[in-house]
């Protein structure tokens, strides 16, 4: 019985260990975030600690620079497009998996999920090779925002599909049957009964897809040109040349965009919960 715990002594050791680990993990996760936020308010042109003079100078610089504002605009447009494409296709596909018998179901499932496990650099390379020289009716497909949206959908769509597959399983199908019995066709039932039931899942899907696309930069690096490059791509390219506090501002703006969306979602959830409560 040598393993009997001497009570009292060990829990203290464990408590100290737990505390030390908590400090470590909180510090680890917060360090790059705090460094970035602090640096974005630096007045100097160099990345250098300590920060002596604080100012909003680099924010003004960011919003005054057409190059960076264009990149931000590209990022947001591409993210909106990705959210729309991947949510539409993912929701429809998940509905098909939920409601219909599909031959070779597992094979299709794996095929749809596979891009999610592919490194971005491989997907970017593949799409760049396959669509490198293609232009449709004089409009160059390569380098366009649409191509980046579709490439980002390779990651976003499987996620939406996975999320919606789980969501559709939670529906009370007696409501759907009731709609059919009352004469609602499959299309009308889907739009007027099913979609409102899973609205929370759809809003979450849109958010996921948006955030993935907004933050992604390896595929975008392969697929954009000077006019369509996204904010993360521009940040990556400038990091390679020289880092200035402008990059910190760009990081903060990117993160703020994500957190704004999150807040909107939170408000949406609260509203939905209130509706249910009423």
């Amino acid at each position: 019985m040598s393993d009997v715990a001497p009570r009292g002594a060990e829990p203290l050791v464990l408590k100290v260990l737990a505390l030390a680990f908590t400090v470590f993990i909180v510090g680890y996760i917060l360090v790059p975030i705090l460094v970035t936020v602090a640096m974005s308010f630096n007045d100097a042109a160099m990345i250098r600690f300590p920060i002596n003079v604080w100012s909003m100078k680099w924010y003004a610089d960011f919003f005054g620079s057409p190059q960076w504002m264009d990149a931000l605009e590209n990022s947001i447009l591409i993210a909106i497009g990705t959210a729309a494409i991947s949510t539409t296709s993912g929701v429809l596909c998940a509905w098909a998996f939920q409601r219909f018998h599909i031959p070779f179901r597992d094979m299709w499932y794996i095929l749809i999920m596979m891009p999610l496990f592919m490194p971005g650099v491989v997907l970017g390379l593949g799409v760049a090779i396959a669509f490198g020289g293609i232009s449709i009716g004089g409009y160059a497909f390569y380098g366009s925002r649409e191509l980046v949206m579709l490439a980002h959908s390779l990651w976003a769509m499987p996620l939406v599909f996975m999320l919606m597959e789980a969501t559709f399983k939670t529906i009370d199908y007696r409501i759907v049957e009731a709609s059919y019995d009352l004469g609602g066709g499959p299309v009308r039932t889907f739009f007027e009964v099913v979609l409102p039931l899973v609205s929370t899942g759809i809003v979450s899907s849109l958010l996921f897809a948006f955030v993935i696309s907004l933050n992604e930069f390896v595929m975008a690096l392969f697929l954009t040109d000077r006019d369509t490059q996204t904010l993360p791509v521009l940040m990556w390219l400038s990091l390679r040349s020289a880092g200035t506090p402008r990059l910190a501002v760009a990081s903060v703006i990117l993160a703020l965009t994500v957190f704004t969306c999150l807040t909107v979602i939170m408000l949406w959830y609260i509203r939905q919960l209130r509706k249910v409560a009423r």
Binding site: V31, P32, I47, F49, N215, E216, F217, L254, A255, F259
Partner: peptide, 29 residues
């Protein structure tokens, strides 16, 4: 807290550490 690195772009994370480690970075200071 755990969601934070997931919601932040990889490039922003890189840049955060990029300001932490060098000679004039926060760690050294």
């Amino acid at each position: 807290l755990a969601l934070a690195p997931l919601l932040i772009s990889e490039i922003a994370i890189i840049f955060g550490w990029w300001m932490f480690f060098p000679k004039n970075g926060l760690l050294s200071y």
